[in-house]
Design a protein around this nucleic acid. Structure first.
Lengths: 205, 205
DNA sequence: GTCTATATTGTGATAGAC
DNA sequence: GTCTATCACAATATAGAC
């Protein structure tokens, strides 16, 4: 994975671009070869099959987010303190590659058999994660609200505006990409504030 | 659209099911015919082409949400008061068809030319919408926070947990669909509360 | 490693019999 | 309205020359 020929890299770059935008089924090997400016059979030479090539791209995409989420779920640090850094990392990663959330979610939903397997491979054990969350004080801090709802709120606020980029950009920002990006950057400050408010609000009731 | 033969209905039902799950490119006409238990050529007889069939399914899916959102954006009622009913409607619709959000978002992102056109056709004019929002007092209520960020927060909290259902279900609810649905129903109460807190919190600063 | 040629299967769509 | 037969083409993949 570290040592790659120039051709191999060109393939990965084009495959990422097209798979992200049009999905696995919507992208042909020919499309990728054309985009990379190479012969189509080279894709098979380097990756053997479309499935294998896709898997490589998919795992690379997952790998940019899952470690961050896994770190949060397994962390011993106070959940509340962990939020700002997590939000910053996740949003920065998505600003670089806004198509990843929708890509990953779509492929997971059309491929439900492999889901649990991939999740496990990525190092997330749901049971342990929930236990750690409570140990780390999430349920105390949220004043009785199900910690899973808190996590859901955080993830929703971070990820959705990117998953829905085409709609958000068009409807709310009139197609102005600069304005959209600025708004997303602003959310790195907004979201931790909101989470803090929500959690302290709940605590005081 | 009102009077449909039995065959036509079978086609739509199967097409919805498969397009929702596997997307346009991931679904063949044969897949749909098999699922409906009819001959493949009947799809062409009734809908002329795959594009036309898909468009019918897509518009039907959009039509379940856009009117609600458009009603909110164009409404004269106080934004704050409008929230609980909107959240209830939207979440109930998604509980019925959890695959729609990811389906719509994915197809919009792989088909960016037609986007603005369809949005406009559905009766949402971004410029008017934003103006109406401010007239309706959104920016006052949010105490200076960009009203678009408020809308984004609301939509994120409502839609994301469904768009990410496969992940959420597996990681947070250990694959227990009953528990997942219960949690989603609970959000019909949680989200309006959160929004209210967020907006009054901002106002008092 | 890179190309041409080719095998095989799948796909959307239509014509025409019933 | 529904079927069979058929078309034109695109898809993945491999064998073999260079």
């Amino acid at each position: 994975m570290v040592l790659q020929t120039e051709t191999e890299q060109k393939i990965i770059v084009s495959a990422e671009k097209l798979f992200y935008q049009k999905g696995k089924a919507g992208t042909s090997m020919q499309d990728i070869a054309d985009d990379a400016g190479i012969n189509r059979t080279l894709l098979n030479y380097y990756f053997r099959s479309k499935d294998k090539l896709f898997e490589a791209v998919f795992r690379k995409a997952m790998g940019r987010f899952v470690p961050n989420l896994a770190a949060m779920l397994h962390s011993d640090i106070s959940f509340e303190e962990y939020i700002p850094a997590l939000v910053e990392t996740v949003i920065d990663t998505m600003i670089e590659n806004p198509q990843i959330p929708i890509f990953v979610l779509q492929e997971l939903s059309s491929n439900r058999e492999r889901m649990p397997q991939i999740i496990k491979e990525m190092g997330i054990d749901p049971v342990i994660a929930l236990k750690k969350m409570e140990e780390a004080g999430v349920s105390k801090v949220t004043g009785g609200m199900d910690p899973r709802q808190v996590i859901l709120n955080l993830l929703s606020l971070c990820i959705f505006p990117f998953a829905a980029k085409p709609v958000v950009l068009n409807i709310l920002y009139s197609g102005d990409n600069e304005a959209y990006i600025e708004a997303m950057k602003e959310r790195k400050k907004i979201i931790p504030q909101l989470m803090k408010q929500l959690m302290s609000q709940n605590r005081s009731r």
